[in-house]
């Protein structure tokens, strides 16, 4: 029996996201720079412009922000690629979580648990700021983009405005800017 032929891109997608799944401490946002590194610079599945478009779509659509992974898979290998990437991204971490949930409950007051939580908080913060920075470097090439990024940071930090309004306002500005 010959093994069914699976495209090398699908295997590579699976391999990349299976490892990323276990590295994504603090959530999908922390691995954005690594996804960019692998998808654009190592595997050449897409250009910088494609990547920022996929990111924009994943942010503008409803649902968890891990969906960026399905778009990377889609860009690399169509709908099957999207499913493979998503499954690879979720399966290892979900299995780990499933089995760990039980153990964790029993060590609620354990000093090591508290130390681990204290220790991982700043790592996560550093990684998320790095995500924002890498995205800004990837996306912002002209003055309007810098203004939009800066204004969004300020609004998000100082007001309780729903993020969707900021994305919507940016979409209108961007469309008008090119239209003029």
């Amino acid at each position: 029996m010959a093994a069914p032929v699976i495209s090398p891109v699908l295997l590579e997608l699976a391999r990349q996201f299976l490892t990323l799944s276990l590295l994504s401490i603090g959530g999908a946002n922390t691995v954005i720079p690594e996804i960019h590194l692998r998808a654009v610079e190592i595997e050449h599945w897409m250009t910088d412009a494609d990547f920022s478009e996929m990111f924009a779509l994943s942010q503008a659509a409803p649902g968890p922000n891990v969906l960026i992974v399905s778009l990377i898979g889609w860009k690399a290998a169509g709908v099957v690629g999207a499913l493979v990437a998503m499954l690879a991204m979720c399966a290892p971490s979900s299995l780990l979580t499933y089995h760990f949930a039980n153990v964790w409950e029993r060590f609620r007051e354990a000093p090591l648990r508290i130390a681990i939580q204290t220790a991982l908080a700043p790592v996560t913060v550093g990684l998320i700021v790095a995500s924002g920075y890498v995205l800004t470097r990837t996306i912002d090439h002209e003055w309007l983009a810098y203004v939009v990024t800066g204004t969004t940071v300020i609004l998000a930090l100082t007001t309780r405005l729903h993020p969707l309004w900021m994305l919507a306002a940016a979409a209108v500005l961007g469309a008008l800017h090119t239209g003029s």
Binding site: A56, D140, A175, T178
Partner: peptide, 25 residues
């Protein structure tokens, strides 16, 4: 062109949101 412009600006805003989340955390 307008769609691409909108998409670029949404990416820029989304990058800003990501930075803001990092600063808040």
């Amino acid at each position: 062109e307008a769609v691409r412009g909108a998409s670029n600006a949404v990416s820029a805003a989304a990058a800003g949101l990501m930075l803001a989340v990092g600063f808040k955390m």
